[in-house]
Design a protein around this nucleic acid. Structure first.
Length: 310
DNA sequence: AATACGTGGAC
DNA sequence: TGTCCACGTAT
C-alpha cells in the first residue's frame, strides 16, 4: 500500500540523516523531554540543541529545577526569548513535585492542566516520553506535511478530522520516530514557502508535489510600538538587562535603555514595561530596584483538580 | 476569538 | 541592509 511505502521511505530518510538531531543521540527521561519540548515550542531546533545541554546540566532533574529560585531559571533561559515559558516550566516542576511525587503523569487530561503544557506539549510527552502509539502529535510542520501529502492542503479538514487522519497515519510501533521525521521533513524540505519537492524522500507519492503553495494570509494588525520598536522588543531588552545585572535600580535601567538623560516619556514607557513584567511574574520591584523574582518568597501554587471544568 | 510574546533566519 | 516571518500557550 502507498501509505506503507511512505512510512518506510520517510523513516529511512530520517534514520540516515547526515547529522542526527540531538534527541536521536541518546534516550531521554520524561523530565528531559518536558524541558526539550517546552524549549521547542517557539524556538528553532538548532538553537534548542545549543541551549538544552547547558540547561539540563544546571537543572539535571525535576527536583533540581523545582528547588531552584526562579531567577536562576530565567538566567539559564537567557537568549531563548519567551521567558514566560521558563516560568511556566518552573511552576510546572514545582507542581509535579508537590502533587505527583516528582513524576510526570502519563495522562493527557492531567498534563493539560499543568502550566505551559498545551495540546502540542502534552501529545509530545505521551509520544516521546511514554511511547504511546495511539496519540497523534500535530504541530504546524506535521499539519502542513500531512495535508500536502494527502492533497488536502486546499481544503483542510476540521481539527477533529485532522486528528483522526493523523492518528491513522501513525505507522505501527514507530510513532515517536514517525513524528520526529515528519517535523524534520517539514522544517527542512516541506517548508511553508518554498518546498524543495525535488529533494523530498516521499515526493513521488505526494499529491501536492511541485505545486506552488498558496501564499499564507498576512496579518492585518500592527503591534504597539515605542520609538519605532515593538513593545515586545523593549520588553525583551529590559528582561535581558535584568538577567545580566540583577538587581538593577530603575534609574540605571532607564539609562541603559535610553541613554544618560531619559525623557519623561521614556521613563513612563519603562514603567509600563515594568508593570507588565510584574504582572507576568517575571520581575519584582522593591524601593525603586528591579530584580528577578525569587523562589522562597513565591506564593504556593495550586492547580485545579482534574474533575473541575476549565 | 483574537492577540501578545521574542529570537534568528529568510529574502 | 532592513523588513518580514515563524508558532504553541495563555488570556
Amino acid at each position: 500500500m502507498e501509505r506503507e511505502r511512505i512510512h518506510r521511505r520517510l523513516l529511512q530518510w530520517y534514520r540516515h540523516r547526515r547529522r542526527p538531531l540531538l534527541w536521536r543521540q541518546r534516550s531521554w527521561t520524561p523530565y528531559e523531554v518536558l524541558v526539550r519540548e517546552v524549549m521547542l515550542q517557539q524556538t528553532q531546533s538548532s538553537r534548542v540543541e545549543q541551549a538544552l545541554p547547558a540547561f539540563l546540566q544546571r537543572f539535571p532533574t525535576l527536583q533540581a529545577l523545582a528547588a531552584a529560585p526562579l531567577a536562576d531559571v530565567l538566567q539559564q533561559w537567557a537568549g531563548l526569548g519567551y521567558y514566560a515559558r521558563a516560568r511556566a516550566l518552573w511552576r510546572c516542576a514545582r507542581l509535579l513535585l508537590e502533587r505527583y511525587g516528582a513524576t510526570i503523569p502519563e495522562d493527557e487530561r492531567l498534563l493539560r492542566r499543568l502550566p505551559g503544557i498545551g495540546p502540542y506539549t502534552s501529545a509530545a510527552l505521551l509520544v516521546f516520553a511514554f511511547g504511546r502509539q495511539d496519540v497523534p502529535l500535530i504541530d504546524t510542520n506535521i499539519r502542513r506535511v500531512l495535508l500536502r501529502v494527502t492533497g488536502l492542503a486546499a481544503t483542510p479538514p476540521a481539527p477533529a478530522q485532522l486528528r483522526e487522519l493523523a492518528r491513522a497515519w501513525i505507522p505501527t510501533g514507530a510513532s515517536a520516530e514517525w513524528h520526529e521525521a515528519l517535523m524534520d521533513l517539514g522544517a527542512t524540505i516541506c517548508t511553508a514557502r518554498h518546498p524543495r519537492c525535488s529533494e523530498c524522500p516521499i515526493g513521488q507519492w505526494c499529491r501536492s508535489a511541485h505545486r506552488v503553495p498558496p501564499p499564507p494570509p498576512r496579518s492585518a494588525r500592527r503591534e504597539p510600538e515605542f520609538a519605532g520598536l515593538p513593545r515586545r522588543l523593549w520588553r525583551g531588552r529590559l528582561l535581558r538587562l535584568l538577567v545580566e545585572r540583577n538587581p538593577l535600580p530603575l534609574k540605571h535601567a532607564a539609562e541603559l535603555l535610553f541613554g544618560p538623560a531619559p525623557s519623561v516619556e521614556q521613563r513612563r514607557w519603562l514603567l509600563e514595561l515594568v508593570a507588565a513584567l510584574e504582572r507576568d511574574g517575571l520581575l519584582d520591584r522593591r524601593n525603586g530596584i528591579l530584580c528577578l523574582p525569587n523562589a522562597p518568597q513565591a506564593p504556593r501554587e495550586s492547580i485545579p483538580s482534574a474533575g473541575e471544568p476549565r
